[in-house]
Design a protein around this nucleic acid. Structure first.
Lengths: 351, 351
DNA sequence: CTGTTAGCGCTTTCAC
DNA sequence: GTGAAAGCGCTAACAG
């Protein structure tokens, strides 16, 4: 007799109905393995007795699958959830998982809390790893057997989803340089090996191309700059560590507050967030965009397209990246090294 | 001898080291239960042999806890991840969970996929339910024993986290009405029992106050309107089903395109997204804000504060809501019916 | 089609 | 301290 206060189990139910546990299990999992009368009897009795269906924990131990896919985010969850680009990626992932009866577990690389608890990670059937991990340590914590897809960075021997960073940046810079600027500035996102906000000097060491997409973006910018016959050393670089308004603002303020004859009249920004921050700060200072200052972004987030002037930017389809990664993880698509195309979008910020 | 291709288990490791399984388990879980020499020996050998630590599935079956907390979202994951307010909530939840070694599982109420797979839900140790579920059905699927906190709506006998919708809306409407408008309009968010976008008539049935926060927001607006001696029937209502630009736009366009002498010169909007959409569309039409049209929002999202004119709005601390809910679920705070205060923010959209 | 049974990998008494 | 043993709740052989 099942006790009052314990959650009813499959075995209890089987006992209660005078059938075998196998039949109950089959009623829930394999309709073809029993008569439909027995099945519906079991199902309705289950509902009546408050049996919620097989326990997910036990089921996942037994079968080895949990229908859970984990997304491991390089940034903190707080950042990733608030950033338009990464939440778009997540929503692409979620869309595919949802449609196939899987659920989404969020793990963050950059733990703010210190102690790394024993991994609830091993619960997931597969991993989508997004962006550069602060330590490789984290990656090696993941079960080596389980499927893994890397997005926006490279993991040895694993399928990846990338965008065409270099060509995209070449294209937008080429567009921007068609109308020859007096002074160019480039705003990079996390280019340096050690955190740094502000102007870049020769001293700083850069992250390798495998470790940051900023390298390929810069390559694209430089290719266009070279081609337009502009010496690289006339193009100052600034670095920004974190893609949020409060971190971008001080760096950009310093640039905008330069004397008129030193201030760049074209800023190539590696994200829309940076470009939008520049736009707002320029407006506040009465610097006209695009007359006094032309701006380009990267990402194509909505916020940049709903305002006037609209941002000239490169639209990357983050949700599609998420969908592709999810499909690979679920085995719906062949796991490959795939690269998505982007779209140049000409707005009024740099016509 | 452990086989080559199977993931190594705790038992294998114990065998290999010639110690008992209990000792290995203790080495990972209860440092005080064995000598520190044995412990470090076990730990280092584990690392050497590639044992990743106790399997989460098995552990959660055995202990009944998974260190996973699920957030059940009323909207689709795609919406929730892209919306500033709900992603801020999620990030508050994530912050607390992270700090306490828990992880976040995302479940959506509004399944786009039809077949509701047998719940991986029962894997979670607790549930945070956010916003009105489309069907109560969904709630009853959750294990009744496990802790549950409701955010922004009411679940019988469960702790809740709310904001002061009515007073907040009273306050902002009172502010807006201080400068007497010629014609007011109110833009509601999901007020009607059946989906509807556009003007509200007497015909439509409304959702109950337990089922939508829009009711209490409207109450607040009306209290101010009454107090300012404006007859309610002179204040037309519009309804918007979904808080995204593409759904808001057509409804608002219809309003803005009314003849000058019918168009409201004050729009009280139930979300910043609605107000921002109105702002953009007004700008496109050369309708000046606030001279020709004053606008108020609700939520206080960043996007509304980084642009000019800034939105006059009510700032709700969504991340704090998330944090509170998470703390209750983890048992760090007393489970209660709590209500957070909001802040009136006066921007240039309705000075 | 139905029932019996052997674990999935781990934690935790309980005796030593 | 340490080790042996009993399941957590379920699924998937397999035998009937």
């Amino acid at each position: 007799m099942p006790s009052h206060h314990r959650r009813i189990t499959l075995k209890d139910l089987a006992h209660e109905l005078g059938v075998s546990t196998a039949s109950v299990s089959n009623a829930f999992n394999r309709p073809d393995q029993l008569s439909s009368t027995l099945r519906s009897h079991i199902l309705s009795e289950a509902k009546r007795l408050g049996y919620q269906g097989p326990d997910a924990r036990a089921r996942s131990l037994r079968t080895g699958r949990s229908r859970i896919i984990a997304v491991v985010l390089a940034e903190t969850l707080t950042y990733s959830l608030n950033d338009a680009v990464s939440s778009e990626l997540l929503s692409g992932v979620a869309e595919v998982l949802d449609a196939h009866g899987h659920t989404l577990l969020l793990l963050s690389g950059r733990q703010p809390g210190s102690d790394h608890h024993p991994g609830s990670a091993s619960m997931a059937d597969g991993f989508i790893v997004y962006g550069l991990m602060p330590s490789d340590h984290l990656l090696s914590d993941l079960p080596p057997q389980s499927p893994l897809v890397a997005v926006d960075f490279h993991v040895e021997g694993r399928p990846t989803v990338h965008i065409d960073n270099e060509p995209a940046c070449y294209a937008i810079a080429d567009h921007a340089l068609a109308q020859r600027p007096k002074r160019i500035g480039i705003l990079c996102l996390r280019l340096t090996a050690t955190p740094h906000n502000g102007p870049l000097t020769d001293q700083q060491e850069w992250l390798s191309a495998e470790r940051t997409i900023t390298r390929s973006r810069l390559d694209g910018f430089y290719r266009a700059i070279d081609q337009h016959g502009i010496p690289r050393d006339q193009v100052p670089l600034w670095n920004i560590e974190e893609n949020i308004h409060s971190v971008c603002a001080p760096v950009i303020e310093a640039i905008l507050d330069l004397p008129d004859d030193e201030r760049p009249d074209l800023l190539l920004c590696m994200s829309d967030r940076i470009a939008l921050t520049a736009l707002t700060l320029a407006e506040q200072r009465g610097i006209r965009v695009p007359e006094d200052l032309r701006l380009t972004g990267f990402d194509g987030i909505e916020e940049g397209q709903y305002r006037a002037p609209r941002l000239t930017t490169v639209r990357q389809n983050s949700s599609e990246k998420g969908r592709m990664a999810a499909r690979m993880i679920l085995g719906l698509d062949e796991p490959t090294a795939s690269r998505l195309a982007t779209t140049l979008m000409i707005g009024e910020s740099c016509p």
